[in-house]
């Protein structure tokens, strides 16, 4: 385009482009828009100098400010650790009893324990710690191995029937199908059912008592209230690990099933186990 073309109607210069007789006006861009546009270019160039930008063969330019998102994450993680600082150190240093006695520390430990519980424990005990057949409910006031803070701490630290931990909780109920006949097992089951106030066949209960005293009382106690040293459950209460009907009890007497819980002290560390202890103790059944 050598010479300016002016639109007759508006008196404004045109670009010379024509479509079906309509020519495009060459109105100037708004000044503020042009300057903003230039500013964005300057900004973009400056950005590539100050921040990592240009791709090179093996990496990219690092930028004069030395910014890195990885460093940001590191700093944030360090800040998160630092924020916990005193509290985490206090949990590490103090025994569980003292943590429980300190209102602030207890609240901190419960939060931390709840988080650890959701990652490590919910697979068996459930997200609400309510358990399921074979996996104890941690909310109630019935404890196989004891509900005092130090009992819970030991159980979590060393596990239950966990072969590779020497200090683990261990007990094993023998399969009575080997030593008792079916009638005796039925009698014993009827007696056990009657202990918690549930109606049972009275003709069986009488014989069951004898069978119980001879075979079961050693671990479950004369009064059938269980023995925590052996992890032997209380048979007189309303809480049943594997079901309260007679069939379930007969199955358990004949060929008992035994749950296994891993030892957590080595995996999670002392502090986390303490926090888990405080959390479990706080669920409402702690002694």
């Amino acid at each position: 385009m050598s010479e300016k073309q002016i639109d007759e109607l508006s008196g404004i210069e045109t670009t010379g482009h024509e479509w079906d007789g309509i020519k495009e006006l060459n109105n100037p861009l708004p000044r503020w828009w042009v300057w903003t546009f230039y500013a964005t270019i300057v900004w973009a160039l400056a950005y590539t100098i100050f921040y990592p930008a240009w791709p090179m063969l093996s990496s990219a330019t690092t930028g004069v400010l030395g910014y890195s998102s990885r460093n940001d994450v590191k700093a944030e993680l360090a800040a998160a650790v630092a924020a916990k600082g005193d509290m985490a150190a206090a949990v590490a240093a103090k025994p569980v009893d003292e943590i429980l006695a300190d209102e602030k520390l207890r609240t901190f430990a419960i939060s931390a324990g709840a988080a650890a519980f959701k990652v490590n424990c919910v697979q068996c005990h459930g997200s609400g710690a309510a358990g399921s057949p074979g996996y104890p409910n941690l909310n109630d006031d019935d404890w196989l191995w004891g509900g005092k803070p130090e009992d819970i701490l030991t159980t979590i630290s060393h596990g239950v029937r966990f072969a590779s931990d020497d200090a683990t909780r261990f007990s094993e109920m023998p399969p009575f199908a080997d030593t008792l006949d079916k009638d005796q097992i039925a009698q014993a089951a009827a007696y056990v059912v009657s202990l918690s106030g549930t109606p049972a066949n009275p003709s069986l209960v009488e014989g069951g008592k004898t069978v119980f005293t001879e075979n079961c009382a050693a671990c479950h106690g004369e009064d059938a209230k269980g023995l925590r040293d052996f992890g032997a459950p209380n048979l007189t209460d309303a809480i049943w690990l594997r079901g309260k009907d007679e069939a379930a009890i007969i199955a358990q007497i004949s060929g008992p099933k035994h749950g296994i819980m891993p030892a957590w002290a080595g995996r999670l560390g002392e502090s986390t186990v303490k926090e888990l202890t405080v959390y479990v103790h706080s669920l409402g059944g702690g002694e």
């Binding site: 609400g128 309510a130 409910n137 909310n139 109630d140 006031d141 019935d142 309303a238 809480i239 059944g285």
Partner: peptide
């Protein structure tokens, strides 16, 4: 979770 807990 849990909605209720049965006590001993």
């Amino acid at each position: 979770n849990p909605l209720y807990v049965t006590l001993s």
